[in-house]
C-alpha cells in the first residue's frame, strides 16, 4: 500500500519550506516553486497561491525581504532574500520539527 501525502500537515510548514530554500540564495516565485517540486522528487506540488500567501506573511514578519529584478523581457521578477531573523526562525522551526517527529514516531 502506498502512502498518501498529508497536505494539511505540509501546508503548516510552507513558511519553513520557503525559508529553507531561500537559505541557499535569493530566488523568485516560480524558481522557489520548482525547487520545492524538485526537492520532494516530484512528490509534492505546492499550489502557487499558497506560496504567495506565504511570501506575504514572511515579509510582514520580517523573515524575508524582497526586491525587483531588472528583467527586460517577460516582466520583472520579484526576488526574495532571507533575513537574519528568518534564518533564526528556520533553525528554530527545524529543531521543533525534529522534536515533534520523534514524539509522533513513538506514538504512531
Amino acid at each position: 500500500m502506498n502512502g498518501k501525502i498529508s497536505s494539511d500537515l505540509l501546508r503548516g510548514h510552507t513558511d519553513t519550506i520557503v525559508l529553507g530554500i531561500l537559505q541557499y540564495g535569493d530566488s523568485y516565485g516560480y524558481e522557489i516553486y520548482k525547487k520545492i517540486i524538485e526537492k520532494s522528487d516530484g512528490l509534492y506540488e505546492l499550489k502557487e497561491a499558497t506560496l504567495y500567501s506565504s511570501y506575504r506573511r514572511l515579509e510582514q514578519e520580517g523573515n524575508i525581504n524582497s526586491y525587483w529584478g531588472d528583467e527586460t523581457q517577460g516582466g520583472r521578477r520579484k526576488y526574495y532574500t532571507i533575513t537574519s531573523s528568518g534564518e533564526q526562525v528556520y533553525h528554530q522551526n527545524k529543531l521543533d520539527w525534529e522534536f515533534t517527529k520523534k514524539i509522533i514516531d513513538r506514538l504512531l
Binding site: G29, Y30, Y33, Y52, E71, G75, R77, K78
Partner: peptide, 16 residues
C-alpha cells in the same frame, strides 16, 4: 498591483 506583476512574471515563466 505589485502582486499582480509578480504573479504575471511567474505564470509566464511557467507557461513557457
Amino acid at each position: 498591483r505589485e502582486l499582480k506583476e509578480e504573479m504575471a512574471a511567474n505564470l509566464l515563466d511557467k507557461i513557457n
